[in-house]
Design a protein around this nucleic acid. Structure first.
Lengths: 236, 236
DNA sequence: TCTCCCCTTTGATACCCATCATTGCCCCCC
DNA sequence: GGGGGGCAATGATGGGTATCAAAGGGGAGA
């Protein structure tokens, strides 16, 4: 179902995305490059699954990956969106526990796998990579805590506006300069926001009525990002 | 208002709490130990404040510290509870940005300060400390994501039960084996749960009526932790 | 000991939002 | 082309929570 191959170069990734792995010293990067295995995933396919033990980390080469928890009642909560150059699966590896989230392709994607032992040994000897790793972790933690505060204190309407801007931030827009460059189901949007699907739908059509966005199937155009920012009521 | 002194030994901390700093190699630990400055804070005093630039990290020696965001509407959201042996303020330092949370003493506390340059230079050369640092970050991130899921999906009642158990986990209980070993205001409990103060109060008295807990001012006794766990509806 | 102020508590009310149910739509496949 | 299934949209409803208001404690300081 997946096709492993070795011909994707990390150097390519570097040029295109400035992935974090390129904070590693050159010799270590080469070591990683020679050991990594690139795999393609079709939209909807699972890269790794919540509950499984990690055997390495993944670096997104092309495509889009969502990371989501499964709540106790079975409902999904999307905790992160990964784009090319991002690494995923490091949390479980670093804390030596099972995955607490599943990684699922939102688009056809190609993802490099770096074996656990190799990555950990490079991490041991490469201070520069370690520091970058910590920077990423600290930054993710900061975002997570911000999200906690907003979930606790902001109404769904504001959180949805914020989420739309976040999606634009993450995946950018298409040629027209305003259509979000990713196709998410209404349910996925709701699971990002942390609300019921129907509420997300209702508020999306409100936004549409208010001229903030335009909807065409799964395509979402942000017509008025400034007003959307105001709707999100952000201060930081 | 604060009293700096140098006589607190990190080795003491090690014996008592197995703080993370003791993953550092011995020579590095000694370097840290000689440079650190210990300060005492009275209950309610601020260790560092949201928005300020970090000059180093802090290691809690004795006492209890809360870390809280200030939401856009001014309401506080407590994102972490720190106990002796824990380090705080590392997120801002590692990502080289301003603090996104304030640290405030919940009890009279003594906290060691380690200057930024020293800590970062030790981090550069000490792979063992770096790894431990990453482990801590990964673990915090895991907890944060779990909290996000629960905030999005669970009712206040379940989250309050979970919070009470979390407080017990963090600060333990008094001699009697059931009274939570920390005094928090109702508002602080609410800000931990992510709800309104009145809701927290109402549900606490419900728990009391149901024989789950006993209330005596700010003292909270967990009479039936098993049932409380069931009320929290946890599966992980 | 008294008083004041803050924290806690309880009640009443409104509303946001989840849930259930129904309809309509589009696309895939038979 | 005609189902069929999944997804989107909209309405109706109820419940969980926030908010407002007001009264009841309890500790600190005079």
């Amino acid at each position: 179902m997946c096709t492993p191959y070795h011909n994707a170069s990390c150097a390519n990734c570097q040029d295109r995305f400035g992935s974090i792995l390129f904070k590693a010293e050159k010799c270590n990067l080469e070591e990683i490059e020679s050991a990594k295995v690139c795999t393609t995933y079709k939209k909807g396919q699972i890269v790794f699954q919540e509950g499984a033990y990690p055997f390495g980390i993944y670096c997104v080469n092309t495509g889009k990956i969502k990371l989501s928890h499964c709540g106790d009642d079975g409902r999904e909560q999307i905790v992160r969106l990964a784009k090319p150059g991002d690494i995923i699966g490091y949390k479980a590896l670093l804390s030596a526990e099972r995955y607490t989230a599943s990684a699922i392709a939102l688009d056809d994607s190609s993802v490099c796998f770096i074996p656990k032992d190799l990555f950990m040994s490079v991490l041991q000897k490469d201070a520069s990579l370690s520091l970058e790793m910590m920077r990423i972790l600290a930054s993710e933690l900061r975002k997570a805590e911000m999200k906690i505060t907003h979930l606790a204190q902001k109404p769904v309407r504001e959180r949805l506006a914020e989420t739309l801007l976040f999606i634009r931030e993450t995946y950018g827009v298409e040629q027209d300069g305003s259509t979000l460059n990713v196709r998410l189901s209404r349910e996925e949007i709701a699971n990002l926001v942390g609300t019921a699907t129907e509420s997300a739908i209702r508020l999306l059509s409100e936004f549409k009525k208010d001229g903030l966005i335009e909807l065409q199937g799964k395509k979402i155009r942000l017509l008025n990002p400034e007003e959307l920012t105001r709707t999100a009521n952000l201060q930081d």
